Simulated assay, not measured.
Amino acid sequence: MRADLVGYVPGTIRSAVRRAANRFNVDIVRNPFPRRLAKLCALLGIRTLVDVGANSGQYATMVRAAGYEGHIVSCEPLSAPFARLRANAARDPAWHTERLALGAKVGEVSVHIAGNSYSSSVLPMLDAHLDAAPESRYVADERAPMSTVDRLLTGYTHLPDQLMLKIDVQGYEWEVLLGAEQTLSRLAAVQVELSMTPLYDGQRLMGDIVDLLTSAGLEPWALEPGFCDSRTGRMLQCDGIFVRPAAVAAR
């Protein structure tokens, strides 16, 4: 092989593989999100991760595989995904599970169950969501207990500080944050789903959530692409990560 071609073929192969994956609506990237998230947890010394809207434990499984070793508290209100969540966490003594919806108050709430499970929400779904993902249409309702982040964490007095809060609750993010009023000052980081256009009736959009978190002393750190309308390419939701500058400085 000519010397000037050494190192060229591997790059060409990588490009060919990526193009082939793209044809199947899949991308191959360096430094993928789970690895970056685990690196952030290590940078901030995150020792407790509160996973709100856990479904069957996909997020916790992802961060564990990426190298996060601290405590996880996963909350899921719906009985079927919670059963899978509890089974997935059964062999991990630092992974705690709660069948709970999290919001601004303690009580009980009705959750709309989506056909794809992970689009389930306390809020009514709007046509913009259904048009982009018809399989997410609601198929049933289920009552579930509701608590707040503040109250939840009082039951885990053994958990260490250096907290990160992850919120994926399909339009109900504002209420979860209102229920974390006391916890916000303890948070080193927040990962929250941000909607750029209304997908659920009554939800707060990206600008409101960003304003609330920045007013609590957290700064934007990263954005991760999320739910897109495959017909138009428009991004409807993304995940925002917000970090407390003092937590970085302390490390």
Rank of each mutant, 00 (worst) to 15 (best):
M1H: 11
M1L: 11
M1R: 12
M1I: 07
P10N: 05
G11Q: 09
T12N: 00
A20G: 10
A21G: 05
A21T: 08
N22A: 15
N22Y: 09
R23S: 07
F24W: 06
V26H: 06
D27P: 00
V29L: 12
N31R: 09
N31G: 07
N31P: 00
F33P: 06
F33V: 15
F33C: 09
P34C: 10
L37W: 01
K39P: 00
L40I: 09
C41A: 01
R47I: 03
D51P: 02
N55I: 00
S56K: 06
S56E: 09
G57R: 02
Q58R: 10
V63N: 04
G67R: 02
E69R: 11
I72R: 00
C75I: 01
L78C: 03
A80I: 14
P81A: 05
P81C: 10
L85K: 04
A87M: 08
A87N: 03
A89G: 07
D92Y: 03
P93R: 01
E98D: 05
G107M: 12
G107V: 12
V109R: 11
V111K: 01
H112M: 10
I113M: 10
I113L: 08
A114D: 06
S117D: 14
Y118C: 08
S119C: 13
M125E: 05
D127W: 08
A133N: 11
Y138R: 13
V139R: 13
D141N: 15
E142T: 07
M146Y: 03
T148S: 08
V149Y: 04
V149C: 07
L152I: 05
L153Y: 02
T154N: 00
Y156L: 01
Y156I: 07
D161C: 09
M164C: 13
L165K: 01
K166T: 03
K166D: 06
K166F: 06
D168K: 02
V169E: 02
V169M: 06
Y172M: 04
Y172T: 08
Y172I: 10
E173W: 02
W174G: 03
L177S: 04
L178M: 10
G179L: 10
A180P: 04
Q182R: 15
Q182I: 11
Q182K: 15
L184P: 01
L187R: 07
V190P: 04
L194K: 04
P198N: 14
G202H: 03
L205Q: 06
D211H: 13
G217I: 11
L223S: 15
G226I: 04
C228Y: 01
C228V: 11
D229P: 05
S230T: 14
S230N: 12
R231D: 13
C238N: 13
G240P: 00
I241G: 01
P245D: 09
P245E: 05
P245I: 04
A246N: 10
A247D: 01
A247Y: 09
A249E: 13
